[in-house]
Design a binder for these strands. Structure first.
Lengths: 132, 132
DNA sequence: TACACAATGTTATATTATAACAATTAATTA
DNA sequence: TAATTAATTGTTATAATATAACATTGTGTA
């Protein structure tokens, strides 16, 4: 059985497209763009996206319903993500801050709940938009 | 002009319903349940939800597309939310941890971006589900 | 009272995502 | 290598989530 060392055909097509992009992509925008590669249906896209998220090659920006390639090798292990989102230009970037990620990974509340995953999204104005 | 000290009719109906609920509610489930109160269209629900989120009376659980009443008076000021989500029973609760929220509110990365809002969702198994 | 703006009502439609089922491909193991 | 098992694919239909556009009504304030 495939051990996810390599991606399947559709997964590879979709990952390549997301990785090349500079901003998070929406599922139907991906669909539109990979139709020339033979991917015709939403479900083909969503299945690949699900898998890619699962194995940590991409992340979903929940507040935007969009997908972005992982730039942080740690994520593949931890399933933990931290993003910075500009509310004006919609620029999204992954925050790679060891101190913060450690803090969150080790976080325990008083309920005895055990966390194996978290997703954090920071919103604000990026440097460029602030200057305007 | 109304200063949001009081809610409008639709806002109040929808807030009351969400506040009574013990779990996060989806927009169309809210719609179905408030139809007897005269709210007939999705847009009426979404408009009220938008406003209630904006003024901090409710929060959106982004990963679930669901809405929950705020149990933390600080949120109304800060727009900062931290949730704990059980992946099995789907129980969601707001984490009220001053140390963590301060840490996040004061967080600065090296991009010079200024954050005025964040949303954090922790995932795992709650005590009950872990025991099973 | 007149103005400005928030909120409402309504219809239509856009966007995001999954169900269900059949067929195929790839790794495992007997 | 044949049989087995699981992942992946293909396809059609449909469910679930959310917004556009426009007309109207309510409410606070100058």
């Amino acid at each position: 059985m495939q051990k996810q060392e390599s991606l399947s055909k559709n997964q590879q097509i979709i990952f390549d497209f997301i990785e090349k992009a500079k901003e998070p992509l929406k599922a139907y925008s991906i669909l539109f763009n990979v139709q020339k590669k033979g991917i015709k249906a939403p479900l083909q896209v969503y299945r690949a996206l699900d898998k890619l998220v699962e194995i940590g090659k991409i992340h979903k920006i929940e507040s935007r319903n969009a997908f972005i390639a992982c730039k942080n090798s740690n994520c593949e292990v931890s399933n933990a993500t931290i993003f910075s989102i500009c509310n004006k230009c919609e620029n999204v970037s992954e925050i790679n801050n060891l101190k913060l990620s450690k803090y969150l990974t080790n976080f325990e509340d008083d309920t005895g709940m055990q966390y194996n995953k978290y997703n954090l999204e920071f919103f604000g104005l990026c440097k460029k938009c602030k200057a305007k």
